[in-house]
């Protein structure tokens, strides 16, 4: 068996989710080849060649792939992928964008968001917002899979010495173009890869109050998240949303502040190792999943917590 892993990167750095996808490839077993498709992506390819367990890195360096446009990327991956038994990417927004196209072009199913590998053709994935877990078996010759990074412990970013090979092929579907990007600038870790996450809910009352959480995040090296209620109320942008319709996180420590614990939210964070809940409502469902619950007014408890750290 041979597995093609599509790297998650921003041309200059390899995103850590790639290390979790390689771990999933290891669980399937077989030769692991990583494709880095981008523009001026030599640095990301170099990083990929050092990842433990990778035997070869393919680099497709062209303006057509610079912004990870799904139309172009999927043509390339479907073409290169024909020789592999499995094609894997992370289940981030890039993977979710282009991988179904790859599957359709190859006339195979796509398996989304796997959290476990049972065998080379059988995988475990959550559905119904994580309220049910399915074990599914694929009858396709090529398995096209997106991997939920929290389901697999990352392999080491160091220790490998894979050969780097250029791919000359340029695929441009000619139907889409990049217009602009507005990325949130932050020195904090990304939500989905942070080892500590502190999230606020409707109880935060407004966006300004999230500064209290940011102060704690900066002390702990944590990412800041939010519940859907806080996003819907306009306190914070949607890319901070943790939950069924937002990001799925599984950090070592998750601190939920002013979050009641709707099923929607629990679906996105109940895989966390340790959960702390701070809420003034003793009956809030979040306390049923919290390892440590503190019934208190967050406007008193949060500043006190910041001082104590």
């Amino acid at each position: 068996m041979s597995i093609l892993v599509i790297a998650d990167h921003d041309n200059s750095t390899l995103k850590s989710a790639t290390l979790n996808v390689v771990a999933a490839a290891n669980a399937i077993g077989g030769e692991i080849v990583v494709l880095v498709a981008g523009e001026n992506c030599g640095a990301a390819a170099e990083a990929a060649s050092k990842v433990a367990g990778v035997s070869k890195v393919l680099v497709a360096d062209n303006a057509a792939y610079g912004h990870q446009l799904a139309e172009n990327l999927s043509l390339l991956v479907a073409d290169l992928g024909k020789g592999y038994s499995h094609i894997l990417s992370s289940a981030g927004t890039t993977g979710k964008d282009f991988m179904p196209r790859v599957a359709a072009l190859l006339d195979v199913a796509q398996i989304s968001d796997i959290i476990r590998v049972e065998s080379a053709d059988t995988f475990v994935r959550p559905f119904y917002a994580g309220n049910a877990i399915a074990t599914v078996k694929s009858s396709d010759a090529i398995k096209v899979i997106t991997v939920r990074s929290t389901g697999f412990d990352a392999v080491s970013a160091e220790g490998g010495s894979a050969a780097v090979e250029a791919v000359a092929e340029v695929k441009d579907a000619g139907v889409s173009s990049f217009v602009k990007a507005e990325m949130a600038k932050s020195d904090r870790p990304e939500l989905t890869s942070a080892s500590i996450v502190i999230s606020g809910g409707r109880g935060m009352q407004n966006g300004d109050n999230f500064k209290m959480l940011e102060a704690i995040a900066d002390k702990l090296g944590a990412a800041v998240g939010a519940s859907r209620a806080a996003v819907d109320a306009g306190f914070v942008p949607n890319d901070m949303q943790v939950g069924q319709t937002g990001k799925i996180v599984a950090p070592n420590l998750y601190i939920a502040v002013g979050i009641s614990g709707a099923i929607q939210h629990l679906a996105g964070m109940s895989g966390s190792k340790v959960i702390v809940a701070i809420n003034k409502d003793e009956e809030a469902p979040i306390f049923q999943v919290a390892d440590y619950g503190l019934v208190a007014d967050l406007f008193e408890a949060v500043p006190e917590l910041e001082k104590a750290l």
Binding site: N131, I133, A134, S138, A290, Y292, L294, E304
Partner: peptide
């Protein structure tokens, strides 16, 4: 192309403890 072999409930989290102070 996909056959669902089984569907299970997610593992339940046991509730923890309440702490009295920060």
């Amino acid at each position: 192309r996909l056959t669902t072999l089984k569907v299970e409930e997610p593992p339940k989290r046991a509730g923890g403890i309440k702490v009295g102070s920060v």
